[in-house]
Amino acid sequence: MIIITQLQWTEAELRKLGNRELTFDREAEMMPEIADRFEDISDASTYHVQGTIKADGVGWLATVRATGEVTAHSTRSLAPVRVAQDFTFKELWIPQEQWGSEPVERLMDTHQALTIPMAHDMIDIYGAVSDHIVLELPAQILTDDEKQKGVMPAGEDWHVISEEEYAAQKKADAKPNPELAKLKDLLTKQEDEEKQDDDSDKK
Rank of each mutant, 00 (worst) to 15 (best):
E191F: 00
L7A: 06
D131Y: 11
E164V: 14
H120N: 14
V160R: 12
L187I: 15
P178T: 04
A168F: 01
A168G: 01
A28E: 12
D56K: 15
H48S: 06
E102L: 10
E29G: 01
D144P: 12
I41M: 08
G51F: 00
E193Y: 02
A181C: 07
I116Q: 10
W93F: 14
D86R: 11
D192Y: 07
G18A: 11
I161K: 13
Q148H: 07
T52K: 04
A12C: 03
E164H: 05
D56H: 13
P138N: 09
G68Q: 07
I94M: 00
A174M: 10
L180I: 12
H132M: 14
D40A: 12
I3H: 07
G100A: 04
D124L: 01
E102R: 05
V81E: 09
Q96C: 00
E97H: 00
V129E: 09
Y166D: 09
D197C: 00
E179Y: 06
E156Y: 04
F89P: 02
W60K: 05
Q169K: 11
T188I: 09
F89D: 04
M30F: 06
K184M: 09
P117R: 06
V49R: 09
W93G: 06
W99Q: 02
P103G: 04
T110I: 08
G59N: 03
A79F: 02
D185K: 14
K147P: 00
L61M: 10
I123K: 04
E33P: 01
G127V: 05
A66R: 04
S130I: 15
K203V: 08
A167Q: 11
E136C: 08
E102C: 01
A172F: 02
P95M: 06
A168C: 07
I4M: 04
S162C: 06
E39G: 13
A84I: 04
T23Y: 06
E29S: 08
T67N: 05
A168E: 15
A79Q: 15
P178N: 07
V64C: 00
I2C: 05
M118T: 02
I141N: 02
I3F: 04
D173W: 07
A79R: 13
M118G: 03
S42Y: 12
M30A: 09
E179L: 14
D131V: 14
E136Q: 14
S130M: 15
L107R: 03
F38L: 11
E136V: 14
Q196S: 07
T63N: 06
E179W: 11
V151K: 13
S74L: 08
Q190A: 11
A44C: 10
S200W: 09
E136N: 14
Q8V: 07
E69I: 03
V64F: 00
T71R: 08
P153C: 03
A12T: 13
Q169H: 12
D131N: 13
E97K: 00
W158G: 09
A168L: 15
Y166G: 03
L142I: 05
M1L: 06
I125P: 01
E102H: 04
R65L: 03
E39M: 10
Q8I: 06
R37V: 13
H73D: 07
Q85H: 04
Q85L: 15
L183W: 11
E165S: 09
L180F: 14
K175E: 15
G51D: 04
D201T: 12
E136R: 10
D36S: 12
D131C: 08
D173A: 15
K170D: 13
L92N: 07
S101E: 07
E164C: 03
E194D: 10
K54E: 09
K202H: 08
Q50W: 03
K189A: 13
D109W: 01
